[in-house]
């Protein structure tokens, strides 16, 4: 029943302990306390998908989870997925296809499409569109993103 709680969690493989105000949500915590500014804030009511991060392997809205709820959990952000190389091929495909413009939605978009790739490597274009249907992008019109994901899935499947 505290308003500040000492919390230990793993962020991109590093164990972190902080005293966290309980009202602080996960994305604010990552950005303000940890300095991981790659995860963005777009709406703070769970609609835009810009704050998407991975908690215990599942994508979640960072604005709809309290940071203290991540106690003992494994949180991964765009910085972590980039540094590990896990999504290097997706990033490369996005780059080649110009599947981003302002880039503000891109970290959340990449986490979401990687989630799809892990769950459904055979996803069709329609399924790609469905899976990113909760990630708002004002710049691209989405087609380039769908193209880049499709290209990556085909490439991954041919290697598998």
């Amino acid at each position: 029943m505290d308003t500040i709680i000492e919390t230990t969690l793993t962020i991109n493989g590093e164990s972190v302990t902080r005293r966290i105000p309980v009202r602080q949500n996960l994305v604010d915590f990552l950005r303000e306390e940890i300095g991981l500014t790659g995860t963005h804030i777009g709406c703070e009511h769970g609609v835009c998908g810009a704050c998407t991060v991975r908690v215990d392997g599942k994508i979640v809205r960072g604005c709809l989870m309290l940071a203290v709820q991540a106690d003992g959990r494994n949180v991964e952000t765009i910085e972590g997925l980039s540094d590990s190389g896990e999504i290097a091929d997706l990033q490369d495909a996005f780059h080649k296809r110009n599947a981003l413009q302002c880039g503000f939605c891109t970290p959340g978009m990449l986490l979401t499409v990687q989630d799809l790739a892990l769950q459904n490597p055979q996803a069709t274009r329609e399924q790609i569109r469905e899976h990113i249907s909760g990630n708002y992008c004002r710049c691209t019109g989405y087609q380039a993103i769908v193209d880049a994901v499709e290209t990556t899935l085909i490439a991954r499947n041919s290697k598998a």
Partner: peptide, 20 residues
């Protein structure tokens, strides 16, 4: 747009929930 202050309790079982 930040949440107002509140306290937080992580319940370990239903009995705790009922008590709170």
């Amino acid at each position: 747009m930040k949440a107002p202050p509140f306290a937080y309790a992580r319940a370990r079982n239903l009995a705790e929930v009922f008590e709170l």
